[in-house]
């Protein structure tokens, strides 16, 4: 198995698999809820749609939590949308705990009385094409100019405690982290599978990515013993 797309029953993974099949027609790509298949995969995509409490519940209902944690420690992993948010400690959405792989919290957009540069209100969800400012040099940004537009649709965003892991930022209501990178993990708030050429380039880069082994303590340990193993 070359790429496993983790399916925990939340939302539509068809778009993710189609885009990966498009950029890597020779690879074996599986949409799976089987922890064994995830364990055998060379690379893992961790997507997500809907509400984070439901996503966490469904992930655990399928016994996928250890498989995700193991993948995040050992192989190239791409988180998308809620798949990014679930890597963090906790979310304001339903006040639910995340996987705790990255320190930080998920918060809701609060437009208040803020106005955009054209005087318009900020609608929530943040829906549409927005610019991504690359704040970290990374193999997954290769061939994609900084400030390229990607497609977003979300009401919550991550607030990482460690600024050093932020790989990209986008302005909406505030200047929020829309991409994070840590060792073999790269995760984005936007949808590369729906972001035209820029998104397909990012997926191509992910397929080619050969990250260095994880540097955090306990990298060789078995998955599931500590949820905070990625912290240094």
């Amino acid at each position: 198995m070359d790429v496993a797309i983790i399916d925990y029953g939340m939302g539509n993974l068809r778009s993710v698999s189609k885009a990966l099949e498009h950029v890597a027609p020779a690879l074996e790509i599986a949409v799976t809820d089987d922890p064994e298949v995830v364990a055998r995969a060379q690379r893992v995509v961790f997507p997500g749609q809907g509400a984070m409490p439901d996503c966490m519940r469904e992930l655990d209902a399928r016994g996928l939590r250890p498989a995700v944690i193991e993948a995040a420690r050992t192989k190239p992993l791409l988180g998308i949308c809620i798949g990014l948010q679930m890597l963090f400690d906790a979310s304001d959405e339903g006040n639910v705990a995340g996987l705790g792989l990255l320190p930080g919290r998920v918060r809701r957009f609060d437009p208040g009385t803020a106005r955009d540069s054209a005087g318009g209100r900020f609608k929530v969800p943040h829906m549409g094409w927005n610019r991504v400012r690359q704040t970290l040099a990374h193999p997954l940004w290769q061939g994609i100019p900084s400030d390229s537009r990607f497609y977003f649709v979300h009401s919550y965003f991550v607030v990482p405690e460690e600024p050093g892991i932020i790989a990209g930022r986008t302005e909406y209501c505030s200047d929020f982290a829309c991409a994070v990178a840590r060792d073999n993990v790269f995760a984005v708030q936007f949808h590369p599978e729906k972001s035209g050429q820029a998104g397909l380039q990012l997926l191509t880069n992910f397929i080619a990515w050969q990250p260095a082994p994880a540097q955090w303590p306990g990298a060789a340990a078995q998955a599931g013993d500590t949820a905070h193993a990625m912290r240094t």
């Binding site: 540069s117 549409g128 094409w129 610019r131 400030d147």
Partner: peptide
């Protein structure tokens, strides 16, 4: 630098 208005 803002969210683009969409044409559908």
């Amino acid at each position: 630098m803002a969210l683009a208005k969409r044409i559908i």
